[in-house]
Design a protein around this nucleic acid. Structure first.
Length: 778
DNA sequence: CACTGTGGCCGTGGTC
DNA sequence: GACCACGGCCAC
């Protein structure tokens, strides 16, 4: 048999590679590749080792040097693992730390979630290869959410029942949605079972009947699936969730994941946190409500979590409606991230299950491992703990940031180097293998590290492929309308490529990297510092004032109406740069504000506000972009900044602040506007100082709430207590607020930094009497 | 295991 | 009151 199919998943079944495939017509089938055996490379004498494996002589590259090695095959991954240390005592072992499934994907050059052509007999693979095919991957998808009984605060899966399971998805392109429960809700989307056990079995049946390929939840790795797994165990649920009749498989260890064989489980929360961490999306809180509102404009029904058990005992339909909305919100988010995840999986060669849980480093690592295989180069090992510690304790010097002079300026041009670090890596061929290589022609970095020019390194090659592909897709993208399928899929491709390309530099200096190269990292940043400072000097020579510089961007003050001179300068810089490096114009701004640091008169770095000719405001670093400031302080600061930038009206700005202070004083402010957000990053007992958020969290734990490391809390400074920490209470428990704190520690510091530049004093803002006139500042 | 890097600001609580 | 460490979040 010969068939074209999507490679949905690969796993191990009794030590054999098992492939889950979906044909173009939608038939899902599994195949085994029994002929593929695990192996590693060995450099050393094998005279006394003949019994310990199957040996094959082969040639590999170590950097650019050819070496003869033995390829040693084993019956299964366990045997390889057992034998590894023995071989290590007899010589050098290479590539023994590559997971078997990835060994298979790399060697067969397979791209998960992409199309393959497979020849098979019975259920055994004869031959398999990746093929280029533009057919869209249309899996059957289902998002789900559960509600659990929680009379004692947090639900306990060994005692508290699961009350309902909602779902929303698409099967063969058709929408499905509903709620499974065992109480007599009268809504038409509800299916009522006799009891909890039958409800869970009904859900498993639903997955089977609809041939679900992708199952998704929000926080489902940590909450929903472990909960269902435990309830299934307690109740003796027989119906399997997996396509091979298996149960939900939970990972041990710290990083919790839940697997369902034959279906790819995506925890949308993990995807959203990843996108938030790398700055692809910007969310203040990662809750389902916030993510769905901010990212896809879906406002779901809200209830207070602690009241779920009360709602269950009510007679109305609030709880089922709420539960269904959670699944619908999850589906909206899944639709938003799925095209990207599919591309990340295809481009990096990682399974969709892994891709949706990966950090940026995993994508880069996977690409570089595949590139190594392509070039017949040995893949470096994951560093041992000592070398990790050594690397970790020796950070490299980073970027240059110029201190601005505080003040308000007009006519500002912002220029920046396009993809600075990637373009340096490619232009200067920066790679561990080109470093200090015997070579005719080389480039010497500012620190004196030599990089060969003539032999192209692995990382520059892989990076250039990524950059070229991205440029190609970006170009093609412009041919299509925004809402078309083509546009969306090209957008996802270039987005995935951008994410990976941007992480390559970081991966080279990441202490746990296989391809770590300190000299490479410090050369890249040194070249970057040199490039920007040369551009600065040239700017000054050409009559511009350099207002500010950060890493790759240049803020120039130019004379009214002389935009063309900026353009001339830009071209002049580009002439001095290597081909792949480019200084671009970001925008011209009419006005901009820089402020001084809190302490002293020095200008604050990484804090500025700009307004362009269309009136679009760009604000960086100010309190108003920080989630650990209250909304009332942030919004007041925003109004002050925008009033100054747009209208130049100081009196209006002052009046705005006075209004806010009055509101606070009269205690008419909304508590939700006073909430301060912060992340509890570690176990509460491990904190050395009792900060307000930790203090509030500790008090909440005494009231029965559980606060896990990594969770975000919102707190309010109340009236009760002496220190700020004593006054801090989580929002759900706060009844009042300390007006003085919000005036003196939130609103005033936020606005005074800006208004202070214009001569306004604290007293001018606090003084309730008739307002002085400050006059226009420009 | 932990989840790309360095540069930077600043509130809070602690020390003296 | 001066000073500093801790810790969080942000710019790039």
């Amino acid at each position: 048999m010969n068939e074209k199919a999507f490679l949905i998943d690969v796993d191990l079944f009794k030590e054999t590679i098992r492939l889950i495939l979906k044909s173009e017509k939608g038939r899902v089938f599994r195949l085994f590749d029994k002929n593929f055996k695990p192996y590693f490379y060995f450099k050393g004498e094998i005279e006394n080792l003949k019994e310990r494996g199957v040996f094959e002589k082969t040639e590999k590259l170590l950097g650019f040097n050819k070496i003869d090695v033995w390829k040693v095959f084993f019956k299964n991954p366990q045997e390889l693992k057992r034998e590894r240390s023995f071989f290590e005592s007899k010589g050098t072992v290479f590539e023994a730390d590559i997971p078997f499934i990835y060994r298979y994907l790399i060697d067969k050059k397979l791209t998960p979630t992409g199309m393959v052509e497979v020849e098979y007999e019975g259920n055994e693979v004869k031959e398999i290869k990746t093929i280029e095919d533009e057919t869209a991957f249309n899996p059957n998808i289902l998002c789900f959410d559960i509600e659990t009984y929680n009379e004692k605060g947090t639900s306990n899966p060994s005692k508290d029942p699961c009350l309902m399971i909602s779902y929303a998805g698409r099967v063969k392109g058709k929408k499905i949605e509903g709620v499974l429960t065992y109480k007599n809700f009268k809504k038409d989307f509800v299916t009522v079972f006799e009891n909890e056990k039958q409800m869970i079995e009904g859900f498993a049946e639903l997955l089977k009947k609809n041939k679900i390929d992708i199952i998704a939840g929000y926080y489902s790795d940590v909450f929903d699936l472990p909960y269902l797994a435990e309830r299934s165990k307690v109740l003796g649920v027989k119906t399997p969730f997996g396509r091979d009749k298996s149960k939900i498989k939970l990972s041990k260890g710290v990083k919790k994941t839940a697997k369902i064989t034959g279906r790819v489980h995506v925890d949308v929360f993990k995807v959203i946190s990843f996108l938030n961490a790398i700055g692809s999306v910007k969310l203040h809180r990662l809750t389902l409500e916030n993510a769905s509102t901010e990212l896809v404009g879906f406002k779901k029904k809200m209830i207070i979590k602690k009241n779920i058990f009360e709602l269950w005992n009510e007679t109305d339909d609030t709880l089922v409606e709420y539960c269904l909305d959670d699944s619908k919100a999850c589906l909206e988010l899944l639709d938003f991230v799925m095209p990207l995840e599919v591309e990340l999986s295809k481009i990096s060669g990682t399974l969709l299950f892994d891709a949706s849980r990966n950090a940026a480093s995993n994508f880069v690592e996977s690409i570089l491992m595949r590139e190594s295989f392509e070039k017949n180069t040995l893949i470096p090992p994951i560093p041992k703990d000592e070398s990790f510690k050594e690397r970790y304790s020796n950070p490299i010097q980073g970027a240059f940031v110029k201190m601005p002079n505080p003040g308000i300026y007009e006519n500002i041009a912002v220029l920046d180097f396009k993809s600075l670090y990637p373009s340096i890596i490619i232009s200067y061929n920066i790679d561990p293998s080109t470093l200090n290589l015997e070579c005719e022609d080389f480039f010497i970095s500012p620190q004196g590290h030599k990089f060969c020019k003539t032999k192209k390194g692995l990382i520059p090659t892989a990076l250039e492929n990524l950059v070229n592909a991205r440029n190609k897709f970006k170009k093609e993208m412009k041919k299509f309308e925004l809402e078309t399928f083509e546009y969306k899929s090209l957008f996802a491709r270039q987005w995935a490529l951008k994410i990976i390309a941007n992480a390559v530099y970081g991966y080279m200096v990441y202490p746990r990297s296989r391809f770590y190269c300190r000299e490479c990292g410090e050369s890249i940043t040194a070249i970057a510092r040199k490039s920007i400072s040369e551009a600065m000097s040239l700017a000054e020579k050409n009559g511009f004032t350099v207002l500010y510089v950060d890493t790759d961007s240049l803020f120039l003050k130019f004379n009214q109406g002389e935009e063309s001179k900026v353009e001339e300068f830009r071209k002049l810089v580009n002439k001095t740069l290597p081909e792949k490096m480019e200084l671009e114009l970001e925008d011209f701004y009419e006005r901009g504000i820089f402020v001084s640091k809190k302490q002293g008169v020095a200008g604050a770095k990484k804090k500025y506000a700009l307004i362009n000719k269309k009136g679009v405001v760009k604000i960086r670093g100010f309190e108003l972009v920080r989630r650990d400031w209250s909304k009332i302080a942030r919004e007041t600061q925003r109004k002050v900044l925008e009033t100054l930038l747009k209208k130049g009206d100081l009196n209006e700005a002052v009046a705005e602040v006075k209004r806010t202070i009055k509101l606070l004083k009269e205690e008419k402010a909304e508590l939700q506007d006073l909430e301060i957000h912060s992340t509890i990053t570690k176990s509460l007992k491990n904190y050395e100082v009792l900060s307000p958020e930790v203090s509030a969290a500790l008090k909440a734990e005494k009231k029965g709430l559980k606060i896990e490391p990594g969770s975000s809390v919102g707190f309010i400074i109340t009236k009760k207590g002496k220190s700020i920490s004593e006054k801090a209470e989580l929002s759900e428990f706060a009844k009042d607020y300390d007006a003085d704190y919000y005036i003196n520690n939130q609103v005033l510091p936020a606005v005074l930094k800006i208004l202070g530049e214009l001569g306004i004093k604290k007293e001018d803002l606090l003084n309730d009497s008739k307002q002085k006139t400050f006059g226009d500042w420009n």
